[in-house]
Design a protein around this nucleic acid. Sequence first.
DNA 1: GGAACACAAGTAATAAGGTTA
DNA 2: ATAACCTTATTACTTGTGTTC
Lengths: 224, 224
Amino acid sequence: MEWNNGNISFSSNFVSPPPQSSSSSALLYNYSFNCNYNLDHFPVVETTTPVATGEGEQNMAGAGVDHQKKKRLSQDQLEALERSFQEEVKLDPDRKMKLSKELGLQPRQIAVWFQNRRARWKTKQLEHLYDTLKQQFDTISKEKHNLQQEVMKLRSMLREQTTRNQGSMAHTDVSGEETTVECTSVEILSCNNYMYNVEDFNQISASAPPFWWGAEAAHLPSYP
Amino acid sequence: MEWNNGNISFSSNFVSPPPQSSSSSALLYNYSFNCNYNLDHFPVVETTTPVATGEGEQNMAGAGVDHQKKKRLSQDQLEALERSFQEEVKLDPDRKMKLSKELGLQPRQIAVWFQNRRARWKTKQLEHLYDTLKQQFDTISKEKHNLQQEVMKLRSMLREQTTRNQGSMAHTDVSGEETTVECTSVEILSCNNYMYNVEDFNQISASAPPFWWGAEAAHLPSYP
DNA sequence: GGAACACAAGTAATAAGGTTA
DNA sequence: ATAACCTTATTACTTGTGTTC
C-alpha cells in the first residue's frame, strides 16, 4: 500500500519515502564513511576510534574495532526490515534471530530498529491524524456556513410569510433563535488562526527563522 | 512464545512529564554509568572502546578516552540550557561558547542540544495544535448540529405556514435545500472515527498492545 | 562560485521506567 | 524476583539544504 498522503510535498524530504529502490542518493548511505566536513566548527571527537580496519560484515559482534562510523544500515537491510515491519510491527524472538542472521546485524540492532520504527510511525500517525482532522474541519466549516445561510433564508421567508399572513403566531419562535446563528459565525473566524496543514507546519519550520519561535508567547504553550 | 496479543491493559502511564527539576530521579542521571542489565538478551557491543580511564569533567575535548557511557546531561546543565533556550531558541556562536565554558560541555554538544530541543518543541507544537483543532472541531460540530435542528424546525414551521396560507409560492425553495441537511448529518457520524485527543493518542500507544497495530489496515495510512 | 557553517529532518543507539510471563 | 521487551525521552550523528562571507 502506498501511503502517500495524497498531497503535495513542498519540502521534498519529509519522511524519506521508503527509498524503495527509486532514489539515487540511497546507495551512498553505506559508503559515505568520513565525508563529514560538517564539523560544527571544531575538530570533532571521533579521531579517538581505532579507525576501523576494513571489514565486510556489518557491525562486528564482540571483536574490538569499528565502533563508530558506519551507522546507517544499508539499503538492502532497510528494505528487508521494512518488509518485515509491514508484515508485523512487533518482533518475536524467532523473527529477530532470523533477521539477525539474514542481514548480518546484531539481534539488538534488529530490536532497536523495530522500536525506533514504531516510534517514528507513531509520530507520522499524529501528523496524518492532524491533516485528516484539518480537512474535516474545513468541510464541516463550510457546511456550517451553508446551514447558516439557509437559516437566514428560511427566517426571512418565514418572516415574509408571517407578514403576509397577518397572524403573528410564530413571531416569538423565530427571533428566539437569532443569537445562535450570529455567535457561531464569529466562532469560525476566530478559529482559523490556529489552522495549518501539516505541510504548512513543516514549511514554516523548514526555512530560516520560523515565525513561531518569535511568536512563542502568543498562543503556544512554550513547552518547558 | 507470544507476549500478550489481544489483551487490554488499561494502565495509565501517560507521557512522562519532562523530569524538569521536580522529580527526584533526576540526580541519578549522571551517576548511573553501567547499570545496564537491560541488554536485550545479549552482551551488547560496547566493550570495544578503550574503556575510559576515570575522569572528572564532562566529555573530554580531543583526547581519546571516555567516548562512551555517561550520556544524559546533569540536571544543572539541563536547567541552564533550558533557561538559555527560553531566552532565545537560536544559538549564536557567542552564546554557544559561553555555555560551553560554563557547563563544561563541548560546543558541539551545546549545538546538538539546541537542535534537538527545537525538534522536540516542534513535535509538542503539533500535539498542541492537534488538541486545539480537535476542541474546535467538537465545538463547531455541535453548533452544526444545532443549526440542522433549527433548519428542520424552520422548515416545518414554514410548511405549516404555507399550508395555512393556501398559497404555494415558496414551496420549491424549501424542498430545494432538503438534500443539504441530510447529507451533512451523515458526515458528522463518519468523521468521528478519526478523532482522538492527544492524551487518548498517547494512552493507546502507552499500554501493551496498542489497538492500532492490529487495526492498522483499517483507516490508517499504514505508513511504510 | 565555493568553502565553512547553521539548520531541519531523519536515524541509530542509549537511558529510564513500566509490563508481562 | 527477574529477564526480556516495550514506550518515551534523549544524545549524537548523517544528510541535504540554505546562507554567508
